[in-house]
């Protein structure tokens, strides 16, 4: 933890920016560079910065949920995305797509189990990185 006014002030802004950017990276990931892993890393970077500026206790309080639990919930979400193919009678991990408001020549808003899987990956990466970093920070 560092006591620097500039860092403290900048962190508040940077954390929200990084988290927002990480969600952007997550959502564009299916067709463009990005995705759950990159997004999770970016998001975790935001909270690592927060931990450097405000200490680990404040970070844990800001996260509300324990990072280990976030990672495990992410694993559950990713697994659920794979298992969801069972409802439609497809093989394990078959992508399921729903095109909201699709018309003849417009795909509408594509929602898919692939995205749900990516959100799971995001949470796993986010949670496990923060688990590791916070544990290391607390020991030093």
């Amino acid at each position: 933890m560092m006591n620097s006014v500039i860092l403290n002030a900048a962190t508040r802004l940077l954390v929200s920016l990084l988290v927002l950017f990480s969600i952007y990276m997550l959502l564009r990931g299916h067709n463009l560079p990005g995705g759950g892993f990159i997004g999770g890393l970016t998001g975790a970077t935001g909270f690592v910065l927060y931990a450097i500026a405000h200490g680990t206790e404040a970070t844990r309080a800001a996260l509300r949920v324990e990072p280990q639990n976030i990672a495990m919930i992410g694993l559950g979400v990713a697994l659920a995305a794979g298992v969801s193919a069972a409802i439609f009678g497809d093989a394990f991990f078959t992508g399921q797509w729903l095109f909201l408001g699709a018309t003849e020549d417009d795909k509408g808003l594509p929602l898919s189990s692939v995205l749900v899987f990516d959100i799971g990956v995001y949470l796993v990466v986010f949670g496990s990185i923060l688990t590791l970093v916070l544990a290391l920070e607390e020991e030093v």
Partner: peptide, 20 residues
């Protein structure tokens, strides 16, 4: 790379704990 990242993060933590 992703797997290696996880493994080496763990390995470094382990070595650090061992040193302590």
């Amino acid at each position: 790379i992703v797997i290696g990242f996880g493994l080496f993060a763990f390995a470094l933590t382990l070595v650090y704990r061992t040193y302590q």
